[in-house]
Amino acid sequence: MNTLRYLWLAGSLLPLFAWAAGSGSSGGYVHIPAGTLVSALKFEDVNGAVRIDAFQMMRRPVTNAEFAAFVGTRPAWQRGHVKPVFAGPDYLGHWATPTQVGTAVQGAQPVTRVSWFAATAYCEAQGGRLPLWLEWEYVAASDRLRRDARDDPAWRERILAWYAQPSSKVLPPAGSGEANRYGLRDLHGLVWEWTEDYSALLVTADNRNQGDAETNRFCGAGALSINDRDNYAVLMRVAMLSSLEGSNTTMNLGFRCVKGAR
């Protein structure tokens, strides 16, 4: 009789445990419902809103500890082993050894100095992929209460403040930021994040040539221009991603994975 009671108790508390495990700073994926997005970027081929299919996204960026576990099982992605064509010379340079994070760096911090190829391999090992730019933009428009906070100057100001701070500050643990409406943390204010289609952000190297589509350079419709000039946060993210090659790493660039429709 008692056993049943205990089982019943445990069972009723199970959702609580699941919630505790999935929320806060721990990992796991969150379901993102389908919706529409008016991108800050002006795409020549789409007018107005873009449809975003439902998908699942990691609650927070991948951490040093998680990535260390990954490279532990995949020697090809270890520092020193990885081919230069897939990751630059500074790849995981902040770790003590090719497989161990060490003590100078925290396991809970978001992993940085990872290339697009490495991030892609990690996500594929999870059965997932890197998010598309539009998927990222869709969820990143949200703040704690609103699905789309982009028109709020205060929101933009807060995001911009991160760019104003120098890199010398110690990175806080991944997932320590405030959750947005979807339950995602640290889309802003922690590290830049790779997207699957980082190389789809076709902007001219001289970003002032808005309207000069350089059709010869970019075939078809030409270079992207910015719809929402006041949204500096997006502008800067686009500028950053468009400056990178797949094998590049920087100390401010990490990633998170998604699963599902694309």
């Binding site: 190297a205 001289d206 920087t250």
Partner: peptide, 12 residues
């Protein structure tokens, strides 16, 4: 671009 088109440089 006065050189801007040819000098777009990522960190590092």
């Amino acid at each position: 671009g006065g050189g801007a088109a040819s000098s777009f440089t990522a960190p590092g």
